[in-house]
């Protein structure tokens, strides 16, 4: 364990085991074929969602599946966007997500600093607390949470939802950040100070850039959690104009069955921002999560 902990946080690109000549090439081909198969299986459900979104209603409900939308149509997307309150939902989701990401990153950074760089009384208790908090089933907490939120006057308010999401993502984010701070070699901090930097300067110039990937990993986690949550948003936000995208998405399932075309179009639209966010920071994710995990 300790040997991993010692590794400097620089991801080394894994090198494929070396083989020789043709044997190696055939083997590579075999692995690639397997890789393609796995890729196809993993991505198929996502493909099916997007393909369904582009199909006209008659093609969707069909006894013989149409693998490719032969007459692609945007009508499902039009229907989805014209469903009442779409733009409100987009706006609300963006507000909630950015607030949760910003707040959780700041709070998690401060808390993890305490956990990683200090010894203090109650430290273990806090660590057990942040793990234990994740174990409480949300379904059972709804009524108690609602009672609290209504006493605080936070029902039907985005601020209330933001506060709740924040507490649900904090345990994980604090933990991930702590791993990062532990991973920063003390020598680097010292070196910075030897160079004559002030302590605060060392903090900003050395610590912050190193923690960067951790901040990214943390914000992704917070982003996904806040973007995808449904039950809290559904129960605590009453006014349709205040609801988030996930609640809006649920409105496609009515007594008249599920309207698959617009639902899949709406789902595609909802997944899009996450994909974009992901791809923007993708290179950082992998490393971020491990550094946090290795030092858990």
């Amino acid at each position: 364990m300790s040997s991993v902990t010692q590794i400097a946080p620089t991801p080394v690109a894994p090198v494929a085991p070396r083989g020789r000549g043709r044997r190696r090439r055939t083997r590579q081909l075999g692995w690639n074929l397997l890789g393609l198969l796995v890729l196809a299986v993993m991505v198929f459900p996502v493909y099916w969602m997007v393909a369904t979104a582009f199909k006209p209603g008659q093609q969707i409900l069909s006894y013989t599946p149409h693998w490719v939308p032969t007459n692609p149509t945007l009508s499902n997307f039009r229907d989805a966007i014209h469903q009442p309150f779409f733009w409100n939902a987009v706006k609300n989701s963006l507000i909630v997500v950015s607030a949760v990401v910003a707040l959780s990153v700041v709070l998690a950074f401060l808390a993890s600093l305490a956990l990683a760089k200090f010894h203090f009384y109650g430290r273990k208790a806090f660590i057990v607390l942040i793990l234990g908090v994740q174990m409480v089933p949300l379904a059972a907490l709804i009524i108690p949470l609602y009672i609290l939120m209504s006493r605080l006057g936070q029902i039907d308010k985005l601020t209330g939802v933001i506060a709740m999401y924040l507490t649900f993502v904090l345990p994980f984010t604090v933990w991930t950040m702590r791993g990062f701070l532990l991973g920063i070699p003390k020598e680097l901090e010292e070196a910075a100070m030897v160079d004559g930097a002030t302590r605060f300067g060392a903090f900003v110039r050395v610590l912050l850039p190193l923690v960067g990937p951790g901040l990214v990993a943390t914000s992704i986690f917070a982003f996904i959690q806040a973007w995808n949550e449904f039950i809290i948003a559904y129960v605590f936000l009453h006014t349709p104009a205040k609801q988030t995208l996930m609640v809006w998405l649920a409105s496609f399932t009515t007594l008249r069955g599920t309207d698959w075309g617009p639902l899949m179009a709406g789902a595609t639209l909802c997944a899009l921002p996450v994909v974009v966010f992901f791809l923007l920071v993708q290179r950082r994710i992998a490393f971020g999560l491990t550094a946090g995990a290795v030092r858990g």
Binding site: A99, L103, V106, L107, L110, L152, G153, Q154, I155, D156, K157, T159, G160, I162, A163, L166, T198, R199, F200, F203
Partner: peptide, 27 residues
């Protein structure tokens, strides 16, 4: 530096307080 950190902590606490306790008007 101390002031910076204290300020940061305070700001964060205020943010939490604001999100949890603002509003309060009855619907």
């Amino acid at each position: 530096k101390a002031r910076f950190l204290v300020a940061a902590v305070l700001a964060a606490m205020l943010a939490v307080a604001a999100t949890t306790a603002s509003g309060g008007t009855s619907r």
